[in-house]
Amino acid sequence: MKDNFSQKADEYAKYRPTYPPELFDYLDTLVTNKVNAWDCGTGNGQVARQLAKSFVTVYATDISKTQLENAHKAENIIYTVQPAEQTNFPDGLFDLIVVAQAIHWFDFDRFYNEVKRTAKKDAIICVLGYGMLQISEQIDEVISNFYKNVIGPYWDDERKYVDEGYKTIPFPFEEIQTPAFTNTKDWELDHLVGYLNTWSAVKHFINQNGYNPIDELRVQIEPHWAAEEIKPVSFPLLLRIGKI
């Protein structure tokens, strides 16, 4: 698993969108026994925080110690630095396993073996993420051009799984058909810029070229976004759920 997110982990925690409560309400209907959940690739702990409201104990893992240092803390969340593909958890521990915006970085076969080992009988796995943001026709066009043509060559190969809506990842489980969810946040332009700066391809671009391409992107967006104006920013959720 690659670690693209230890740098500036505080910005990741501040600017990355959280997931809608409706999603977790839906997950609650699928899981009968809410004892132990595993939030794998937890990052800033935003999913662990929501799971902690329903489960007795949430085990949250990530390979980035820096991310975990910036994660939300709660008495029933246990954070540990561990790779997704090899953990120290005992067999048959989890009622629910969630991977949010991270599975495309994993070794699928090794991770799924770990899922099957650590899951209880009839446990649920939820693979979760979000697609390209949508704001307005003009702004979307500017960001799409930036995404494809400016930083396009700097995306890791694994990004293709996000672009394909997680439909092409292997998923060797009894799949459950899910409703569609969209996550909408009200942001100022500064927050959008902060979010875009967390993109791994932007970091790769800066490392190779010595300047931040977001500066020019902001100039292109500003004619469509007044100072201190708040706009709704929508993210279509990527969702695969199955019975283990």
Rank of each mutant, 00 (worst) to 15 (best):
77 I>F: 11
235 F>G: 01
206 I>T: 12
206 I>R: 13
59 Y>R: 13
23 L>I: 06
98 V>I: 15
234 S>P: 01
18 T>C: 05
116 K>H: 13
138 Q>L: 07
84 A>G: 15
53 K>S: 14
242 G>Y: 13
70 N>E: 14
150 V>M: 04
129 G>T: 05
89 F>P: 00
239 L>S: 03
204 H>G: 03
17 P>Y: 05
17 P>L: 06
50 Q>F: 06
23 L>K: 08
3 D>R: 11
25 D>L: 15
213 P>W: 03
193 V>P: 00
193 V>G: 00
201 A>G: 01
7 Q>W: 08
219 V>S: 01
219 V>K: 09
102 A>I: 07
149 N>E: 14
18 T>Q: 13
92 G>E: 14
212 N>R: 07
171 F>L: 02
172 P>Q: 02
212 N>V: 02
134 Q>P: 00
225 W>D: 01
11 E>T: 13
136 S>D: 07
36 N>W: 09
158 E>D: 15
63 I>G: 02
178 T>M: 00
138 Q>Y: 06
174 E>F: 05
35 V>K: 14
1 M>T: 13
208 Q>H: 11
243 K>D: 03
176 I>Q: 11
4 N>Q: 14
64 S>N: 04
200 S>K: 04
60 A>R: 13
184 T>W: 09
104 H>T: 09
36 N>K: 08
96 L>D: 11
135 I>R: 05
70 N>D: 02
30 L>I: 12
157 D>A: 15
53 K>G: 08
45 G>T: 09
242 G>R: 05
230 I>F: 01
33 N>R: 07
150 V>R: 02
31 V>Q: 13
231 K>I: 02
137 E>Y: 05
125 I>P: 00
215 D>T: 15
112 Y>E: 03
90 P>S: 12
22 E>C: 02
229 E>N: 00
25 D>E: 15
76 N>G: 10
151 I>A: 14
230 I>N: 00
117 R>C: 11
104 H>L: 12
83 P>V: 08
45 G>Q: 10
149 N>D: 14
24 F>N: 02
100 A>W: 10
119 A>Y: 01
180 A>H: 14
3 D>A: 03
56 V>H: 13
185 K>C: 08
38 W>S: 12
84 A>E: 07
88 N>G: 12
154 Y>T: 11
80 T>Y: 05
74 A>D: 15
160 K>G: 04
241 I>F: 06
169 I>Y: 06
87 T>A: 00
8 K>Q: 14
203 K>L: 10
110 R>F: 06
230 I>G: 03
10 D>S: 15
181 F>C: 09
182 T>F: 08
